[in-house]
Design a protein around this nucleic acid. Structure first.
Length: 888
RNA sequence: GGGAGCAUAGCUCAGUUGGUUUAGAGCAUCUGCCUUACAAGCAGAGGGUCCGCGGUUCGAACCCGUGUGCUCCCACCA
């Protein structure tokens, strides 16, 4: 077999992914095995996979592949989200390029364009998921606007409305002037911004000729505001009733600057006497606090802004101009008219739309809301009782609890077309009828209006918040809402684990648990695994503006999918942010190559066996290979147990490190070297078979992380029908401690001798002679040959005096003398021994201090004391050995 | 303003109810090697005030208090 010098990922990746698909390995149907289910967090249909997705999908694929190889019926259901605001914005932009304005076309026409657009771009994300090697069940691909899914959303809306949990009303909501829609509280991101506080003069209206002299002989008051462009919406000014300065203004009015409109002075405890000037302008249409005060004092609401953030007719001035441009103009005008007292720098938090990144306007608007209090209780209980466990728990459980305990009603209507249209119909008088269909709504309408026609009803124009459909994901992906109790949902629900970013804990995770408890009376998943945010090397968020977000397909081209997966997993502790560094992908590529070279070595051995036939080997050689085999077998068992434990705890990065070291260090650097035949000789067939078996076992362990190369090598090792992707893990035996200990001792001795060789410039080709002083020479019988080969010794003699020129090293309790054919510098070795001696004496001292402490001996557990005594005697023994050799 | 988390080698992180811990790993660094699988490699090595201070304890990287610095979440003071 001719193997390329290095591993070439591209061809292997395409070959194996289509092979797996053709064998339907990723297809899952209910059967007698236990289910292991993951529903993918549906990426936006408009998007491409970014590094955050890559981390997420890789984690899921690792978990699902591990489960598939461990006796579970693994089902990973993929899909995508219609992402109403984001997609609608893209479609609007696309139409604009064609010269079409959204307002000039009908809803039907718009949706036609939108679906065309979705067909064109919606599959990009799927091909990227495939490229990464994700073992999703493509037969289960679900889109949140699929026919059944659409029906499910409508059904849930009607059901919650019937239960009295959904209502319609005018409330203060967050308005996005760019998308021209209402948002939920969660869709608003608050950022610290340095703004200005403007101190503006309001003239006191001269009602009874006494006002001017009454207030400190002034004809005005001064009010601080951040938003001078909203003064035209003021309907009062307000001071604290206890504030002496403003007491005399009771019953008076002031004039709004620039438009000279008189508004009353009112008093309310809410106002902080010490902030600003202690008097506040009340603008009920554009501030939640002002709105509440307005309600309390029966103030009118004057909305001075249009939907797009320009000034409305109610503002009287600057009509049609943008709010921020108007702010500047008004400040300038105030200044010119002498109404601006001063400006102050001021830091405040401003709400931005998560989607469009524009400043959100608080606005009074009639919208649909979902009452959250009742639904939040079971969702809270599910997590608090540990029924759903969050990883890493300590970090997020408290956040989750706080949010649910303080949750406010959810504004679920959006002024968009792309999405699930609200199933509510209005008659001519504006009465509303909710039903799954127009006919159903009409039935309700008919009760009071017997003679009416169905044509009189008009459907609500708005659609539902994207998250109002996403929260049904783990249920409706298995048709659990539209076809309750079907075989799939019975079998797959609740799902096993949800893997997602911590940034959508409220948007999605909490709400899925609510929906699960409401509609399935059962949690949607048992575990939630939060991945951190992917940042660049300098810890900055990845963003288009910074240009620090790499293109996934390019990375796969450059390093291969396995290396990308390796690189992103090797340094991603659960819940912590991941500092993305291409260096780790490089490491992944090197690892690929390491595996490839191990394969090449084994193949060379195979060729040689074919060429030379079986060769008889010596007894010692057999014994020594036996040791290598027994040792690696036990080491493998040890690692398998360790990896299982780590993966159960979602410590995937550590599990990968453990496997990496097993393969690179234990298998390649130690095991293969130990069984490597002398130059020109071929390896024994039995030993060779073991080497292949072990390689397969390690590949199997690695497969969930690096599926392509492991499958490729698995097939190159032996002619076979089966595939690694579905190979079931064998039960693992407990490792034998003494075997592992002997292995470690052997490795330590080899390393120590190599160190001596290195430090004394003994060339690899120069053989050395070993004299070992030991209490247990028989221990060496199974490893003697390995030891000689690994340090290039021509012989080993036990308990035989060495010559005067020999160097001494002490490993454990073994004293090893090294003789070389060249002059060696004994003084350097002496320094090393002195250094060891120093350390040991310090160590002994600390142990002695403990043991001579009465309280320690009285209080510590007996086994701890025993341990300390052993430390003491070991250290003493070693010290005397070193001292002895220093005297020689 | 409220809450949560973090601080261990140059970097990223382990360190499991306090006791083989005068602290480990990977990457990076340094030294020597083109040794017949692998220079994308091999063999070695160096590198730490466990953030500061105080306390509990026979014993602290680990528990408690406090200070400092970072990160995140939540909140309607103009």
């Amino acid at each position: 077999m001719d193997l390329s010098k290095n591993y070439i990922p591209a061809s292997a990746e395409d070959k194996w992914y289509s092979h797996w698909l053709s064998k339907n390995y990723f297809t899952s149907r209910p059967d007698s095995r236990p289910a292991y289910t993951i529903t993918i967090p549906p990426p936006n249909v408009t998007g491409v996979l970014h590094m955050g997705h890559t981390l997420n999908e890789t984690v899921q694929d690792i978990l699902i592949r591990k489960a598939r190889m461990s006796g579970f019926n693994a089902c990973w259901a993929p899909g995508s989200d219609h992402a109403s605001i984001a997609t609608e914005a893209k479609v609007v932009g696309m139409l604009k390029e064609k010269g079409i304005e959204k307002r000039d076309i009908s809803r039907q026409e718009f949706l036609k364009y939108a679906f065309e657009w979705k067909e064109k771009y919606g599959n990009i994300i799927y091909s990227q998921i495939a490229k990464l090697g994700c073992s999703v069940d493509w037969n289960r691909t679900t889109f949140t606007m699929d026919e059944h899914y659409y029906r499910a959303v409508i059904k849930v809306f009607v059901d919650l409305h019937n239960k009295g949990l959904i209502y319609r009303g005018a409330r203060m909501i967050n308005w996005d002037p760019a998308a021209k829609t209402a948002l939920s509280d969660e869709e608003v991101e608050h950022k610290d911004v340095t703004g200005k506080l403007y101190y503006v003069k309001y003239k006191i209206a001269a009602t009874n000729n006494d006002a001017q002299s009454a207030v400190y002989n002034q004809d005005h008051i001064v009010i601080a505001t951040q938003r001078p462009e909203t003064i035209m919406g003021d309907t009062a000014v307000c001071a604290n009733p206890d504030d002496e300065r403003y007491r005399l203004l009771k019953g008076k009015s002031v004039l709004i600057p620039l438009i000279d409109k008189a508004v009353p002075v009112i008093f309310d405890e809410y106002v902080d006497k010490d902030f600003g000037t202690g008097i506040l302008k009340i603008t009920p249409a554009h501030d939640i606090n002002d709105y509440n005060i307005g309600l309390k004092h029966n103030l009118p609401v004057v909305d001075t802004l249009n939907e797009d953030g320009t000034m409305s007719a109610a503002a009287q001035i600057y009509i049609g101009e943008d709010r921020f441009a108007v702010r500047k103009k008004i400040v300038e005008e105030l200044r010119q008219k002498g109404l601006l007292v001063k400006e102050e720098e001021y830091t405040t938090r401003i709400g931005y739309s998560q989607r469009t990144n524009v400043v959100v306007e608080p606005k009074i608007s009639t919208q649909w809301f979902l009452q959250m209090k009742k639904m939040s209780q079971p969702a809270l209980g599910a997590v608090m009782s540990g029924h759903v466990s969050i990883h890493p728990g300590d970090k997020f459980t408290a956040t989750y609890k706080y949010w649910l305990e303080n949750v406010k009603d959810w504004c679920i209507s959006r002024q968009l077309w792309w999405g699930h249209q609200i199933p509510a119909w209005y008659d001519e008088e504006g009465n509303v009828y909710v039903g799954e269909t127009k006919e159903e709504a009409f039935e309700k309408y008919k009760i009071q209006n017997v003679k009416s026609k169905i044509e009189n009803l008009q459907q609500d124009e708005d659609v539902l918040d994207t998250w109002f459909s996403a929260w049904l994901w783990p249920i409706e992906i298995f048709n659990g809402i539209t076809s309750p109790g079907n075989d799939d949902v019975n079998y797959y629900y609740p799902t096993s684990v949800l893997v997602t970013g911590q940034d959508i804990i409220f948007f999605w995770v909490a709400r899925m648990i609510m929906a699960g408890m409401e509609y399935m009376h059962e949690k949607p998943f048992s575990d939630v695994y939060f991945t951190g945010m992917v940042r660049d090397k300098q810890g900055r968020k990845m963003s288009k503006q910074l240009g620090n977000s790499p293109d996934l397909l390019e990375l796969i081209n450059q390093y291969g999918a396995d290396a990308v997966r390796f690189g992103i997993m090797i340094s991603s502790p659960a819940g912590n942010d991941l500092l993305f560094d291409e260096g780790s992908l490089e490491q992944g590529k090197h690892f690929n190559n390491k595996l490839w070279n191990a394969l090449k070595l084994l193949k060379m051995w195979e060729e040689k066996i074919k060429l030379n036939g079986q060769q008889p080997i010596g007894k010692t050689e057999t014994i020594n290979s036996d040791f290598a085999i027994t040792w690696f077998q036990n080491r493998l068992n040890e690692v398998r147990i360790e990896v299982d434990k780590l993966m159960k705890e979602f410590r995937l990065s550590e599990a990968l490190k453990t496997i990496y070291s097993l393969i690179w260090d234990d298998y390649c650097s130690w095991f293969l070297e130990w069984i490597k035949p002398e130059y020109g000789r071929s390896v024994d067939q039995t030993i060779y078979d073991f080497a292949i078996d072990f390689f397969e076992d390690t590949l199997q362990l690695l497969h969930p992380y690096m599926p392509f190369i492991t499958e490729e090598i698995y097939h190159l090792l032996r002619e076979r029908e089966d595939d690694l992707v579905v190979k079931q893990f064998r039960p693992v035996a407990a490792p034998v401690e003494t075997v592992l200990q002997h292995g470690n001792m052997l490795k330590e001795i080899i390393t120590a001798i190599r160190d001596v060789r290195n430090k004394n410039n003994i060339k690899p080709k120069d053989a050395i002679k070993l004299f070992i002083e030991t209490q247990n020479p028989s221990l060496y019988r199974p490893l003697q040959q390995i030891l000689m080969k690994q340090v290039n010794a021509e012989f080993i003699k036990f308990n035989t005096p060495a010559g005067n020129t020999a160097l001494t090293i002490v490993v454990e309790k073994e004293k090893i003398f090294i003789e070389a054919n060249i002059e060696i510098d004994v003084s350097a070795q002496k320094d090393k021994l002195l250094k060891d001696l120093d350390y040991l004496k310090g160590f002994l001292n600390s142990v002695d201090r403990k043991l001579s402490n009465d309280k320690f001996v009285r209080n510590a557990k007996p086994e701890v004391i025993e341990l300390e005594r052993k430390k003491k005697s070991d250290a003493e023994e070693k010290i005397s050995m070193i001292e002895q050799s220093l005297q020689q």
